[in-house]
Design a protein around this nucleic acid. Structure first.
Length: 200
DNA sequence: TGTTGGATCAACT
DNA sequence: GTTGATCCAACAC
């Protein structure tokens, strides 16, 4: 199935991270796996910008883990955390400057039934499957295998399908103890799929 | 070689 | 509000 929309090009990702992050709200992530197609609209993100940002993985320099963050914008940065979860980031800005946007919440658009099968059994049908960075990666089946993918390619990419501009809320980033004064979390205030709106 | 704690989530009290 | 699950990168030694 072909989804109607304009694929985001390299230029989109090369802009300043604090411009790209809120601009990602309402855009659609498409994951074309050989056996399945998944798509979801972004409703919550966080920006991590450069070695001067104490909360950014690049705060203490380049390592094997954060290597793709140092590359050109428009690539995926996936890492494993807390022994159980993965987090998906979109690398931004020019080659050599480490920055990325963490995807924290999405509204399922295509393949919700497939996503549900990747989740633990016994949840009620209206259980939110993608409100939170770990839950999003689990619903999409994203792991470190997808680290470093070119998001202008055909496997994993983003499109603008003309969604209405969301009403954007701003807050400090979640789950970090450093740089809590920086309000670099952006979310669609009308979406149920923003993390923290627990519905079970 | 060993230790520690994290951009999480859900199930407790 | 607190804790368990469970891995591995980063850093200390």
């Amino acid at each position: 199935m072909e989804i109607l929309g304009q694929k985001l090009t390299r230029d989109f990702y090369l802009r300043p991270t604090l411009t790209v992050a809120p601009d990602l709200l309402g855009k659609t992530i498409v994951y074309n796996h050989p056996q399945r197609q998944l798509a979801a609209d972004i409703v919550e993100v966080e920006a991590y910008v450069g070695e001067d940002d104490p909360a950014c993985h690049a705060a203490s320099g380049k390592t094997e883990r954060n290597r793709v963050m140092y590359g050109r914008g428009g690539y995926s940065y996936l890492y494993f955390i807390y022994g159980m979860y993965h987090c998906f980031n979109i690398v931004t800005e020019r080659d050599g400057f480490p920055a990325a946007v963490l995807i924290r919440g999405v509204e399922p658009f295509i393949g919700k039934d497939i996503m549900s099968r990747l989740l633990p059994p016994g949840k009620s049908p209206n259980w939110l499957i993608s409100d939170g960075p770990g839950k999003f990666c689990r619903a999409f089946g994203l792991t470190r295998k997808q680290n470093g993918l070119d998001l202008t390619g055909s496997e994993l990419f983003l499109i603008d399908r003309g969604n209405e501009k969301p009403h954007v809320g701003v807050s400090p980033r979640v789950g970090i103890k450093k740089a809590t004064k920086r309000e670099w979390r952006f979310f669609d205030i009308n979406s149920r799929y923003v993390s923290g709106n627990r519905t079970v």
